[in-house]
């Protein structure tokens, strides 16, 4: 696998980001703004699934309204995250927290768009054990992604 990561780091795009003084920090900042967007779209609905926050709104309605914002946040997150990764692919390869993050991230994405979405759509009757567990799993998975992401930068 290492030669593959070395290849990525050798691309012109990676060199452009790495040699620039401003690009990496600016992309990092954009990655954080996308975190806020995901946070808003995700936590608002997870709180509702737990029976808190916007409780006078039906769960399927809130989930449907939040979905485009969540999609936009995830798209921005993946785009900026990929650019950050590309610029230091070899460092990421050796970084245990990057590996942890990349292990949880696909699970979080699949859970959000397969399980959680289905649970939210079917929750016309309000909160139940099913919606609460779904919200807790969602929050735990994304919290794991966020924490591991921050620690990538500490262990360099």
């Amino acid at each position: 696998m290492l030669p593959f990561f070395e290849g990525i780091e050798g691309t012109a795009l990676a060199q452009l980001i790495r040699t620039s003084l401003w690009l990496f920090p600016v992309i990092e900042a954009a990655h954080l703004l996308a975190l806020c967007a995901i946070g808003g779209a995700l936590i608002t609905v997870d709180l509702r699934l737990l029976g808190a926050g916007l409780t006078r709104t039906a769960i399927p309605d809130l989930a449907r309204e939040a979905r485009p914002w969540l999609m936009a946040g995830v798209a921005a997150m993946l785009a900026t995250g990929t650019l950050l990764f590309v610029s230091e692919a070899v460092k990421c390869y050796h970084n245990p927290f990057f590996r942890v993050k990349m292990s949880i991230l696909p699970v979080a994405l699949l859970f959000t768009f397969l399980v959680r979405q289905r649970v939210a759509r079917g929750a016309q009757g309000g909160t139940s054990m099913r919606t609460r567990v779904t919200a807790l799993v969602s929050l735990a998975l994304w919290l794991g992604v966020a924490i591991a992401g921050r620690w990538i930068g500490f262990s360099s």
Binding site: G40, T44, R150
Partner: peptide, 29 residues
């Protein structure tokens, strides 16, 4: 880490209110 991760809760929910105040989403709420 707590400072950065809490951004998602704090700025995230603040932005949700802002989006509602703009009339850009959830206008029926």
């Amino acid at each position: 880490t707590a400072h950065v991760v809490t951004l998602a809760l704090f700025v995230g929910t603040a932005a949700a209110l802002d989006v509602r105040l703009l009339g850009a989403a959830m206008v029926q709420v």
